[in-house]
Design a protein around this nucleic acid. Structure first.
Lengths: 300, 300
DNA sequence: ATGTCTTACGGAAGACGTAATAATA
DNA sequence: TATTATTACGTCTTCCGTAAGACAT
């Protein structure tokens, strides 16, 4: 039994579906069937109870999953880690992120650190009011920002996570009593203006027009998060934010309202295309892998 | 990179010699070279510093060895374990052994127990004076005895360990003052007689004749270890024993003398051919594997 | 010259996909 | 009938050995 077989077994043990397993691993489902059958011959017992309608782990299958998953992860990470070090993944990696966003991706950061112990990871605060400033200035190697980003000279990496979009309003604002809002409500509001937010990114939290076409009024400029929250607390201004803000800044005088028709904001790494180092590639790889194991954990 | 490749890498990392690695894994040394080269391409750096005269791990190679060895062992043991359980390795396994012999193979017993937690291992004492009695009577499933065993209906398993042969004499015996002895000295001695020792096995500790052809006198019959040691302590009788006895029975009045020209006694499992259960096969397998990892530990 | 690692090449094993088949709801 | 797992079969990769070459002592 080889690592490829083990990967197929472990994936099927999670998906419990031959077709999805085949898709995830980019093989034919016939192959999945063949490999599982081979393993069952090797082990000497059936690993999955299956009809053409349902796939379940047998006790022996569950036990094999327990025995193999740790070692498999260890070996794959070990290879990845040594290869990364050989590719020059070492030194200092400076990441930019806003407020609580690093707390949204602890798995990813843990994976990266364990995989690349030779790398010192540093964090710098960046502002939603000018999300790409530090990247462009070269003050951070990569920044965690929301999509969509379309800027020349900037590369967009894999998605790390996503957060619902909420509207932050002052307790005295007319909307403050509502349970939820929708984009249309912004037609009656004034939203904050950032100092340097690309147009594409601005739309995610502050569309220029409501779904019906009414313009959304632009208010004063804020240059930091605390300025934003202070302005909103005064009552006349509102501001779209990631839902994470509601968890980390439950301040008096501030109300967070779900925006029913806002798609979740997707977060991603961005970096200067000209400064794509092995470190950055390692970060991308770790992001993809952590993403996948997140899915794994959610799937069953 | 597949498990087979990892096995080759780990073996070469221990042997530090392409030829010996190839021999151990039953492949050509060309294959070892090809696999290592492939891995070096995959990892992106050289794993072994090698000339046609010397093979050494590079730092990256050493790191990869650390990363892979644990996971590899885990996976192989896991597969083995689940397969064994499926093959019906469960229930009670009764092993027979003499005196301190179980203490000579703790690694093997640990491996077996960890691999087969569903098996209850019991121990029964057997006597060197009739080493196969309990096996033949079916009172133990397998017994740990010394080679050579040639008995119809009895299967000989893999070797577990070996012990030098010593001569146990009483403090008052003429040989007691010697540093060492040789087989020829037995021509002047009387040795104990067992109650039921097969001829082939008897030769290991008590040859019928000395190298020069003199007969070795047979003395009284002893039926247990304590009887043996008591008879020897009286002074006129001697007895060949495994060196382990010297460590575990350093009794007053007893002297142990190395026998210079005695090859080490090899110990092995034996069982009734007719009663070869999956449990017995699992014991054989664990013995072979423990033997191999013993070698591994001794090699570097 | 000899022992040892590497390269070149060819045959065999097996990995994998396509398409047809069987089985379940 | 629709969905999904399995089997049959052909292609193509890659595993692996043999034999010759390269290199160090």
């Amino acid at each position: 039994m080889e690592l490829r077989d083990i990967e197929i077994f472990l994936t099927l043990a999670e998906e419990l579906h031959f077709g999805r397993t085949a898709d995830r691993l980019r093989v034919s489902s016939a192959r999945v069937s063949q490999v599982i059958k081979k393993q069952e011959r090797r082990i000497g017992t059936t690993l999955f109870e299956r009809t053409s309608r349902r796939v379940l782990l047998t006790p022996a299958g569950r036990r094999l999953q327990q025995e193999l998953s740790v070692g498999y992860r260890q070996i794959m990470d070990g290879i990845q880690s040594v290869a990364a070090e050989a590719a020059g993944v070492n030194g200092v990696l400076t990441l930019g992120a806003m407020g609580p966003q690093p707390w949204m991706i602890p798995d990813l950061l843990d994976l990266f650190r364990s995989r690349h112990p030779a790398v010192e990871v540093r964090h710098r605060e960046i502002q939603a009011t000018a999300p790409l400033a530090e990247v462009k200035a070269g003050e951070v190697d990569a920044a965690l920002v929301w999509l969509p980003v379309r800027e020349p000279g900037i590369t967009v990496g894999p998605v790390t996570h996503s957060s619902p979009v909420m509207l932050m309003v002052g307790a005295g604002h007319p909307l403050a009593g509502r349970e939820t809002v929708c984009w249309e409500d912004l037609g009656d509001c004034t939203v904050l203006t950032g100092t340097d937010v690309p147009v594409s990114m601005e739309e995610t939290f502050h569309p220029r027009r409501t779904p019906s076409g009414r313009p959304v009024a632009r208010g004063p400029v804020a240059s930091s998060w605390h300025e934003q929250i202070t302005l909103v607390a005064e009552g006349s201004i509102v501001c779209g934010v990631a839902a994470d803000a509601a968890r980390f800044y439950p301040w008096p005088g501030i109300v967070y309202l779900p925006i029913r028709d806002a798609p979740p904001a997707q977060w991603t790494w961005v970096w200067l295309t000209a400064r794509q180092t092995p470190l950055i590639r390692a970060l991308s790889q770790a992001t993809r892998d952590a993403q996948r194991s997140d899915q794994d954990r959610l799937t069953p």
